[in-house]
Amino acid sequence: MLWETVCSVAGLILVAIGAFCDIAAAIGINRFPNFFVRLHAATVGAIGGAVVPAFGAGLIALGSPELGNYRFFVAGVSFTTGLMIMILGQAGAHALARATLKAKAAPLEPCVHNALRRREEVRGE
């Protein structure tokens, strides 16, 4: 079936993108200079390296007729998991970054742009 092949190929491409994002995130976490930029690399790993391959796994399951009706269960779980990580990953990273900044727990140098400090300046805090 054509659509099954399309699903499988699209899924494999998404898994490959995920693998690339994971490697990029791992290099970033090791090489970036401070906590906040390393957190940025970690979210690349969480969204690109976990959400995208989870969607890919769902598509691969849909394109696998040998799984029978179970492919829909696998695909459903994969898509739901991907969606939940997508919602959670950004909120977790935001909470970590905000708490670290407020508590001054990590050095902020080098700093290119600090949106939170800018907002506080505008508010006059």
Partner: peptide, 16 residues
Amino acid sequence: GMSLIVKTTTRILMPL
């Protein structure tokens, strides 16, 4: 509590 972003995410996730 925490910031609006985290609160909104929690509101979406809790029923799930």
